[in-house]
C-alpha cells in the first residue's frame, strides 16, 4: 500500500491510497463529526455534517470527508467560519425533526445551533439511512428501506421480510442517532397496521 502524505488542520498525516479524509483524520486522532457514517458500511455522504475544506492544486473546495479520497499533498481544514456555519445550519434543519436527539444536541452545543430555529415537524427520522444500509449491507435482508423521494422520503419496514427477520435481530435499533424507539415504532406500525 502506497503511503500518501496530507495535511489536516496543519498536521502532517499519513494515509493509505483509497482512504477517505475521514478515515485519515480518525487514524490521526482528529475529530470530524458524522451522523450517517458507520465503519461497517459503505460511505454514504448524505448528512453532510462532515463537510470540510480541501485545497488541492491551488483550488479550494468544500467536500464531504466521509467520501472524499485522500490525495498526496491535500490540505484539509476541518473547522472554519464557513464550515461551522454549514454544520450549524444542518443541525438546525435536522433538529426540526428530532429536537430531543442526544447526538444532535451535543453537536448543537458545539456549533451554537438553535433547535427552535425552524418550525417543528417531529418525525424523529433524520434519514441517515443507517438502519436501511445496515440491514442491506451487513445483514443482507433488506427488511427496511426508503420509500418515496424528496421531502416525502421516509423509512419503512417491509412487512413480509420484517415479520420473519426483525424480532430476533433488531441490530439496527442501537444504530439510530435520534431515538432507538423510533425504529421500533416504525417496525411495529409496519407489522400491525400496514
Amino acid at each position: 500500500m502506497s503511503e500518501i502524505l496530507l495535511q489536516i488542520d496543519g498536521r502532517e498525516v499519513e494515509a493509505r491510497k483509497g482512504m477517505t479524509i475521514l478515515e485519515a483524520a480518525q487514524s490521526a486522532g482528529i475529530f470530524i463529526p458524522t451522523l450517517c457514517h458507520h465503519e461497517k458500511l459503505e460511505a454514504y455522504g448524505a448528512c453532510r455534517i462532515c463537510t470540510v475544506e480541501v485545497e488541492a492544486r491551488g483550488r479550494k473546495n468544500l467536500v464531504a470527508a466521509c467520501v472524499y479520497p485522500v490525495e498526496q499533498n491535500l490540505v484539509v481544514r476541518t473547522r472554519s467560519e464557513k464550515i461551522d456555519r454549514i454544520r450549524k445550519m444542518i443541525l438546525e434543519l435536522l433538529l426540526a425533526h428530532a429536537p430531543d436527539a442526544f447526538a444532535l444536541q451535543d453537536l448543537a452545543k458545539e456549533y451554537g445551533a438553535d433547535k427552535d430555529r425552524f418550525e417543528k415537524e417531529a418525525s424523529f427520522c433524520i434519514h441517515c439511512g443507517l438502519c436501511v444500509r445496515y440491514c442491506a449491507e451487513v445483514k443482507k435482508k433488506n427488511a427496511v428501506g426508503f420509500v418515496d423521494r424528496g421531502t416525502r422520503r421516509e423509512i419503512s419496514f417491509i412487512p413480509e421480510i420484517a415479520s420473519k427477520e426483525c424480532w430476533n435481530c433488531k441490530e439496527c435499533f442501537p444504530l439510530c442517532p435520534t431515538e432507538a424507539l423510533q425504529a421500533a415504532f416504525v417496525l411495529t406500525k409496519a407489522l400491525f397496521s400496514p
Binding site: G45, A46, C47, R48, I49, I86, M89, I90, L93, L94, A96, H97, F118, E119, I126, H127, G129, F146, D148, R149, G150, T151, R152, R153
Partner: peptide, 22 residues
C-alpha cells in the same frame, strides 16, 4: 417542484428546499 423531485438523500438539499419553500 424540487421538494418533490429531489431524491431526498442529503440534508442540505432535502431539508434546505423544504424550509426555503415554507
Amino acid at each position: 417542484f424540487l421538494t418533490n423531485e429531489s431524491c431526498g438523500k442529503c440534508v442540505p438539499c432535502r431539508e434546505g428546499i423544504r424550509q426555503m419553500l415554507k
